[in-house]
C-alpha cells in the first residue's frame, strides 16, 4: 500500500487522535499553569508548613517519572475510592507533572522582579495580594515566558503517554493502526510528522507571539 492510499484509508482515525491529543494538551496546560502558579507562590511563602508542602509536591513530581504518576493516578487512586475516568486521569497526570516544573519557573520569575518594584508597591499602600496581582506577577510573567515555551513542548510530548492508559489520542491510534496493518513506517512516520507540525508550527509560534505581546504590553519592546 502506498503512503497515499494509507492516508486515504486512515486519515479519519489519525485526525480524531490528533483532536484528542490537542484536547489533552489544552486541558493539561490549563491545569499545569494553575498548579505552577499555586505551587510557585506557596514555595515563596513565609509559612514553613505551606512552603514545605510546595517543596514536597515539586520534589515528588519532578523526582518520579510521568509514567509512574500516570499509572499511580489511574490504577492506585481508585483503591482509595477516587475513581477517575481515563481521559481525566490522562490530562490530570500530565498537568500535575508539568505544574511541578512550572512552579520553579514561576518562583524564578517572581524572584527576578527588581526589589524596587516591591518597595514601590508597598509605598503606595497596596495590599500584598494586590501587589502580587498588579505589580509583581505581570513583570514575572514576561521574564519567565521564554522557558515556558520549552515546557509547553514537553507538555505536548507528555500527552503521548496517556495512550498507555488507553486514551484514544494520536499515539494510541497510531499503535492501533500499526497493530492491524503492520505498516509501521507509514503509521509512526505520519504520527511523528503530526506531532512535529503541532509543536513547531503551532505551540512554538504561539508562545513566541505571547512573549512579544506581553513584552509590548509592558512597554518593553
Amino acid at each position: 500500500m502506498s503512503t497515499f492510499d494509507f492516508l486515504v484509508l486512515y486519515w479519519p482515525r489519525l485526525l480524531s487522535g490528533t483532536g484528542i491529543t490537542i484536547a489533552q494538551f489544552l486541558l493539561a496546560a490549563v491545569l499545569g499553569v494553575a498548579v505552577s502558579l499555586c505551587m510557585g507562590l506557596l514555595k515563596l511563602s513565609h509559612n514553613p508548613v505551606l512552603r514545605g508542602a510546595a517543596v514536597t509536591y515539586i520534589e515528588v513530581f519532578r523526582g518520579t517519572s510521568l509514567v509512574v504518576q500516570l499509572y499511580w493516578i489511574f490504577f492506585v487512586l481508585p483503591l482509595f475510592g477516587l475513581s477517575i475516568e481515563k481521559f481525566t486521569a490522562g490530562y490530570v497526570a500530565v498537568g500535575l507533572n508539568i505544574g511541578a516544573y512550572g512552579a520553579e519557573l514561576v518562583r524564578g520569575g517572581i524572584l527576578s522582579v527588581p526589589k524596587g518594584q516591591w518597595e514601590a508597591a508597598l509605598a503606595i499602600n497596596m495590599s500584598p495580594a494586590k501587589r502580587m496581582r498588579r505589580i509583581i506577577l505581570p513583570q514575572a510573567l514576561v521574564n519567565m515566558l521564554p522557558p515556558w515555551g520549552n515546557l509547553m513542548i514537553e507538555l505536548l510530548k507528555g500527552t503521548a503517554l496517556v495512550s498507555l492508559i488507553s486514551v484514544a489520542d494520536l499515539m494510541f491510534e497510531a499503535r492501533q493502526i500499526n497493530a492491524s496493518t503492520y505498516l509501521s513506517a507509514q503509521t509512526f512516520g505520519v504520527a511523528l510528522i503530526i506531532y512535529y507540525i503541532l509543536s513547531r508550527f503551532m505551540v512554538t509560534p504561539f508562545m513566541r507571539w505571547l512573549e512579544r505581546h506581553m513584552a509590548r504590553k509592558l512597554g518593553k519592546a
Binding site: I153, L156, K157, G158, A160, L161, S163, L164, M171, A174, R175, N178, Y182, L183, S184, A185, F188, G189, A191, L192, Y195, Y196, S199, R200, T204
Partner: peptide, 23 residues
C-alpha cells in the same frame, strides 16, 4: 535536532522498534 526534540520519545521508541522489521 529540532524534529527529534519536538516529537514524543515514546513514539520514537515504537518507530525504531517496529520500522526495522518492515525492512
Amino acid at each position: 535536532v529540532e524534529f527529534i526534540r519536538s516529537t514524543p520519545l515514546i513514539l520514537q521508541i515504537f518507530f525504531v522498534f517496529y520500522v526495522g522489521p518492515q525492512f
